[in-house]
Amino acid sequence: MDGPESTQVTLRRRARPRRCKLYETKGAVPCSPPIAFGRNSWVLVRFEDVSLRYGAGPEILRHVTYHLEPGSFHFMAGPSGAGKSSLLQLMYLAQRPSVGSIHMFGRDVAALSRSEAALMRRRIGVVFQDFRLLDHLSALENVALPLRIGGQRADKVRKHVAELLAWVGLADHLHALPPTLSGGQQQRVAIARAVVARPNLLLADEPTGNVDDRIAVRLLYLFEELNKLGTTVVIATHNETLVSRFSHPVLRLQAGEIQLSRSAPAGSRSTKGSAA
């Protein structure tokens, strides 16, 4: 089996069950900790007048102001070099803004200690554009990484991860090393790693770049299902065709500036984010 469409998956909707489950399984999947909101209690992510430049170079992002509500689903679109990856890096705390403030989960990220930033990152799942799988670890071990870092027991982790990999169609590749997998398979391993710990926020940078359109749509359905379970999702892509097939709002980046728009078919879904 080589694709997520080959596995029948039933996802629970919206209301989070007492024992959280990302997908149909006999075992309980660990839930993300409840979001503790502070002063900005109604937003998950808030950017206020954020600019970013690397060293003395030009500004990659200029006066970006927007916020995301919990449970929202956004595409982030724009041409290559528009700043999509940089914006995502700010959101997964890999960069600090040159100017402006960022609040995540009700906390000012500038005030976070290294330890607090690490704990916050556990609530954020990231699908990197270049996958960033560890070549010396098997697919199973790569996907298990966030759970192990979170201190979960190895025996429970193994069962849970194996089920998740089966769900994304990699049941026969549990012990395969990433260099032996195709681009699409690596991408699915990366996606499984991003969602395995049930993050509150999922950020995906061109997650469909290495798969054909059919698989790309299936992967987006996967993200939608995750979103229905309460995870806030942001997907950066330059594939406008794909964006137009879904009704989610789009954060458009153009030359470092951001605008919010709705993708077609419009009106089928309420937007939970806004940009100034």
Binding site: A118, V126, L145, P146
Partner: peptide, 16 residues
């Protein structure tokens, strides 16, 4: 360095 950076990005503390 790159592996350590990835570990940090998925939530690893320095102590890990």
């Amino acid at each position: 360095g790159r592996v350590i950076e990835l570990l940090h990005l998925v939530g690893a503390q320095d102590s890990y």
